[in-house]
Design a protein around this nucleic acid. Structure first.
Length: 298
DNA sequence: ACTTACACCTGCCAGC
DNA sequence: TGCTGGCAGGTGTAAG
């Protein structure tokens, strides 16, 4: 489920419930999700135990828990990752990979601290966690990730300049996390549909106004998703459940193969693109000539 | 520096 | 029932 809006929902939920708490213990149940941590599982645990969480931050689809010693617990949800909060003792999920036990300070100094479990659950394990040394502000591991379009410091004109110098298809550019972060396959297709732009149009054949318009649609669709994603929160449960709400109702293109385009009624088409799928309206989103010739279309 | 293909994982579903 | 192939919201790496 995780593109920018979903990760932001997770970030906000973690911020609300774990900032101020201390990591009492860490249990790595599968080595793969910590593969990016060069310390290995044991070192990963040692670097975290006793640390206090002071902030939860995000860039694109990465999030991190800033620690009091200046390090960070950096995370990515991959295709199927979740960060869940539970009362201790809740039944283990089938794909529970890492368990953190947190000591949450009491509401006032007279009350005893409570215990909370934070769990990294990930079926496919494309996601992962790592301790980033000195990474509390911005982990060095992700300096190559561009700012995301929700970031107030995102530079629209720089994006337009760089995109117009690239020969790649515009959808590939939207998915390039070094150019603009947080956009995945769903929001790329949705923004392109709204912009009436075919994803295979090369970047260097697009004008500045067209790219600015596309950027506006990226922000709009993400903003709408974020507004709906924010409802999936419970007091002690960070619900990272991608099947809910938004996706069933509000998608105009993604996953809509054969259904009529909401603008013109033409059936939405699906084509293979970059080892995945692209959905678009063949009438509203005209393919570039070269792409249609290569695909054998008319 | 840019571009592209591929590897990395597990599970589910349709079709045989 | 069980097999197979195709598909799934992502990214790092390596080679051109």
């Amino acid at each position: 489920m995780p593109e920018l809006p979903e990760v932001e929902v997770v970030r906000a939920g973690l911020e609300r419930h774990v900032v101020g708490s201390t990591i009492a213990s860490v249990e790595v149940l599968h080595p793969r999700p910590v593969r990016r941590d060069h310390r290995g599982s044991t070192g990963f645990v040692a670097a975290l135990v006793g640390q206090r969480i002071v902030a939860v931050r995000r860039r694109g689809k990465y999030f991190w828990l800033a620690l009091a010693n200046g390090d960070a617990l950096l995370g990515h949800l991959g295709m199927s990752g979740q960060m869940l909060l539970h009362e201790p003792g809740a039944a283990d999920e089938r794909h529970l990979r890492v368990r953190f036990t947190l000591r949450v300070p009491g509401p006032d100094s007279a009350r005893p601290p409570a215990t909370l479990e934070m769990r990294f659950v990930d079926q496919r394990m494309f996601g992962g966690l790592a301790v980033s040394e000195g990474g509390a502000e911005l982990p060095t591991e992700i300096v190559h990730i561009a700012r995301d379009p929700i970031d107030p410091e995102f530079d629209d004109e720089e994006f337009v300049r760089r995109a117009r110098r690239r020969t790649s298809a515009v959808k590939r550019l939207l998915l390039d996390q070094g150019l603009i972060s947080g956009v995945g396959n769903i929001y790329a297709d949705e923004a392109l549909w709204r912009a009436k732009l075919h994803g295979e149009r090369p970047g260097d054949r697009l004008t500045g106004p067209v790219l600015r318009d596309l950027l506006g649609h990226v922000r709009a669709v993400m903003g709408e998703a974020l507004a709906q994603g924010g409802t999936s929160f419970d007091a002690l449960y960070v619900n990272v459940n991608g099947e809910s709400g938004y996706f069933d109702r509000s998608l105009d293109a993604y996953g809509q193969e054969g259904r009529p385009c909401g603008r013109c009624g033409t059936p939405i088409r699906r084509v293979a693109f970059m080892n995945r799928s692209s959905y678009f309206c063949p009438s509203c989103q005209r393919p570039p000539r070269t792409a249609s010739r290569r695909a054998g279309g008319r």
